[in-house]
Amino acid sequence: MKFSVFTASTPDWTPEEAARILASQGWEGIEWRVTDQADAPEPGFWAGNRATWPLDGLEGDVPEIARITRESGLEFSGIGGYARADDHANVDRMLAATAELGARQVRVAMPRSDSGDYRELFDATRRDIARAAARAAELGVKALIELHHETITPSASAAYRLVDGLDPEHVGVIHDLGNLVIEGQEAPLAAFQLLGPYLAHVHVKNVRWVAGETEADGTVRWSHEWATMRAGQADVDTYFAALHAFGYDGWVTSEDFSTELPLEERTRDNLAYLRESEARSRSLAGVTAT
């Protein structure tokens, strides 16, 4: 497996800083965040993120994205796009930029599950994804669907229904360990086996559930918050063991949204932990190192 970082999780750094620091720490790849975002007084994950490339004017930035990535020695693990499946013009732009960069694969965003009747949303999105897959085939790239809470594909089962019958060379699924703690959790190995050739990419972060105030009748309201890789509820070792057992040997992309450690310490520790966990998991899965 090879390890990369999604730059949504590195908001304090410029693209040049992100590429240089991640390469110096030993990461092998980078997944650039591409979206138009709101300004913010301080850099944040979702607004004012300095390591984000704007969608507006993306075509003009492609040479600079390529240069920064190439000169750092990092590879593209993919492109973190936010164009929704029904935004055909911007999906096409993202696919074209991915092809020009040689980045191979790009995320296409799913509609929220609360944005309409689920059955109608699902049927319409199936048509949109079929269209995106056809365009990706023309360009020699792959459109990716992420398992994400509060969207129409929170689970492997839902994503499989969406892509089943489409060409897995040009449409695939991002399995996301942390998101599934919030919604959509299924046994990892079973999920990988269900997805089969559609398992194209992996995101790793961690989450914990936190008890809120207890109401007068004794009801406890819970909420989730991002946690460090080491402290969240998802079992990273077991996850890697399932990936090994399935035979996955592709990219594993970190997107840690916890803030307990300073950013540079956080990314350094994440790489150390992911490598340690991946090595430990080999014995769990009965896999011999090569």
Rank of each mutant, 00 (worst) to 15 (best):
Arg67Gln: 14
Arg67Thr: 12
Ile68Asp: 08
Ile68Asn: 00
Arg70His: 14
Arg70Asn: 09
Gly73Cys: 07
Leu74Gly: 11
Ser77Leu: 11
Ser77Met: 07
Gly78Ile: 06
Ile79Met: 13
Ile79Cys: 08
Ile79His: 07
Gly80Met: 08
Gly81Asn: 08
Gly81Leu: 00
Tyr82Val: 05
Arg84His: 05
Asp86Pro: 00
Ala89Tyr: 05
Asn90Val: 01
Val91Ser: 03
Val91Gly: 09
Asp92Lys: 02
Arg93Gly: 03
Arg93Asp: 11
Arg93Met: 07
Met94Ile: 12
Met94Ser: 08
Met94Cys: 10
Met94Asp: 04
Leu95Tyr: 07
Ala96Met: 09
Ala97Pro: 15
Ala97Gly: 13
Thr98Asn: 13
Glu100Ala: 14
Glu100Ser: 09
Leu101Asp: 09
Gly102Phe: 13
Gly102Ala: 09
Ala103Gln: 04
Ala103Ser: 09
Ala103Arg: 04
Arg104Thr: 10
Arg104His: 12
Arg104Tyr: 00
Arg104Leu: 12
Gln105Thr: 05
Val106Met: 04
Val106Arg: 01
Val106Asp: 09
Arg107Asp: 07
Arg107Met: 11
Arg107Thr: 04
Ala109Gly: 11
Met110Asp: 04
Pro111Ala: 14
Arg112Asp: 13
Asp114Phe: 06
Gly116Asp: 14
Gly116Pro: 08
Gly116Asn: 13
Gly116Thr: 15
Asp117Ile: 11
Tyr118Cys: 03
Tyr118Lys: 10
Arg119Gln: 11
Arg119Asp: 15
Glu120Asp: 15
Glu120Ala: 15
Phe122Ser: 06
Asp123Cys: 04
Asp123Leu: 13
Ala124Val: 14
Thr125Ala: 02
Thr125Glu: 10
Arg126Tyr: 07
Asp128Val: 06
Asp128Ile: 03
Asp128Tyr: 02
Ile129Lys: 01
Ala130Ile: 00
Arg131Pro: 05
Arg131Asp: 05
Ala133Ile: 06
Ala133Phe: 02
Ala134Met: 06
Arg135Trp: 02
Ala136Val: 06
Ala136Lys: 03
Ala136Met: 10
Ala137Asp: 09
Ala137His: 12
Ala137Leu: 03
Glu138Asp: 15
Glu138Met: 05
Gly140Val: 06
Val141Ile: 12
Val141Tyr: 08
Val141Leu: 04
Lys142Ser: 06
Ala143Phe: 05
Ile145Phe: 00
Ile145Thr: 02
Leu147Ser: 07
His148Tyr: 09
His148Val: 04
His149Met: 06
His149Ser: 14
His149Gly: 12
Glu150Gln: 14
Thr151Pro: 07
Thr151Leu: 04
Ile152Glu: 05
Thr153Asn: 02
Pro154Leu: 08
Pro154Glu: 06
Ser155Arg: 12
Ser155Tyr: 10
Ala156His: 10
Ala159Ser: 15
Ala159Gly: 05
Tyr160Leu: 15
Arg161Asp: 15
Arg161Gly: 13
Leu162Gln: 03
Leu162Trp: 06
Asp164Gly: 01
Asp164Phe: 01
Asp164Ala: 15
Asp164Arg: 11
Asp164Gln: 12
Asp167Gly: 12
Asp167Val: 10
Pro168Leu: 10
His170Phe: 14
Val171His: 00
Gly172Pro: 04
Val173Gly: 03
Val173Gln: 05
Ile174Tyr: 05
His175Ser: 03
Leu177Glu: 02
Gly178Asp: 02
Gly178Phe: 12
Val181Phe: 13
Ile182Val: 15
Glu183Gln: 15
Glu183Phe: 08
Gly184Glu: 00
